[in-house]
Write a protein that binds this DNA or RNA. Structure first.
Length: 328
DNA sequence: CGCATTTGACCTGCGC
DNA sequence: GCGCAGGTCAAATGCG
């Protein structure tokens, strides 16, 4: 894929700010006659209007280009996913004959997690390499059931990461402030550590699978160890609040560990009426599996709750209507 | 009254 | 099969 060639996301929408008024040459007052001044004012208004129209055309073109870019990226993503799916099914096809013996794969999450955790402890590595988790299929050299079971378990192993936070020893709340909203659903005293372990679920999005275990370090009681399982499928709540004020773009969230930002959706208010093809494209993008339903719901609720967005939208729409009426 | 937290009961896997 | 340990559930409780 040649993403690099496509990713010229210059976004220089305001690269040419309106400087018409500033760029106008200063005219000495004493040289300007009244008639001449009127004429010149008409001229500058005309020039200004032309420049505005030109600017509008430029922004429209830029917007169109970005929309096309987004479409291409979505297509490439879908294609990649299909390829991965194809590859996975091709490699796991040999195991299908043994499926009768593999019904236990749908074990409870608890046991899988325990296995995962023990493997971490044995490895002595706090952070599981994401690459290992994302390998859709590993080498298909071994054919026995145990190895295939192991492979499957590795594939569904959630991403686990650990964070150490220094707190007051007297503070027994076991709260780690990481910017997300957590709901405590359990607490347990474990055998290897006298301090209790608290269990949290991410409560920001109902569908978010991320869990967190928090326990004081056995060596240093002032250190709280938080173990995260899974990846957030929503933006960080604090960032959402921060973004709520700006109406420039709505950024879809990703996991906190991933540095890349999500796709940006542009509301094209400069076009009078989207073509049928474009409408279909937009609908297709919204219905596409790569943009999960809860994202759309969250976006909708966030946008409708945001008074700034409403005001900006209303202003944009009324401005557009006024412009259209002005042309008639 | 609604929501979050607490806490004992229960479930499941693992080792013996 | 049994006991242990970790993880989860859900009723009870507390708080704003």
């Amino acid at each position: 894929m040649e993403f690099t060639s496509l990713l010229n996301t210059s976004l220089d929408l305001n690269a040419k700010p309106l400087r018409i008024l500033d760029d106008r040459p200063m005219i000495p007052k004493q040289e300007v006659g009244s008639n001449l001044f009127e004429l010149r004012r008409d001229m500058t208004v005309k020039e200004e209007r032309d420049a505005l129209i030109e600017e509008l055309n430029r922004v429209t073109a830029e917007n169109k280009r970005l929309t096309e870019l987004l479409t291409v990226m979505c297509e490439n993503c879908t294609e990649l996913r299909n390829q991965l799916l194809e590859y996975t099914t091709k490699n796991s096809g040999g195991d299908n004959n043994n499926n009768n013996n593999n019904n236990n794969i749908n074990n409870t999450a608890a046991s899988k997690k325990r296995k995962a955790e023990s493997s971490i402890n044995n490895g002595g590595n706090n952070n599981i390499d994401e690459k290992n988790n994302n390998t859709g299929a590993s080498e298909s050299s071994s054919s026995d059931e145990d190895s295939s079971k192991k492979r499957r378990e590795e594939n569904i192993k959630p991403k686990i990461s650990r964070t150490c936070v220094r707190t007051e020893v007297s503070d027994t709340s076991l709260i780690v402030k990481d910017g997300y909203q957590w709901r405590k659903y359990g607490q347990k005293v474990t055998r290897d550590n006298p301090s209790p372990r608290a269990y949290f679920k991410c409560s920001f999005a109902p569908t978010c699978p991320v869990k967190k275990k928090v326990q004081r370090s056995i060596e240093d009681q002032s250190i709280v160890v938080a173990t995260y399982e899974g990846e957030h499928n929503h933006p960080q709540p604090s960032k959402v609040e921060a973004n709520a004020g700006s109406n420039k773009a709505m950024t879809l969230g990703t996991a906190p560990s991933s540095s890349s930002s999500g796709p940006t959706i542009t509301l094209d208010l400069t076009k009078s009426k989207p073509s049928h093809e474009e409408t279909r494209n937009i609908r297709g993008k919204l219905d596409a599996p790569e943009l999960p339903h809860y994202f759309v719901e969250q976006m909708a609720s966030t946008l409708t709750k945001d008074p700034n967005f409403k005001a900006a939208l209303a202003a944009a729409i009324t401005g557009k209507f006024l412009r259209q009426n002005g042309k008639m």
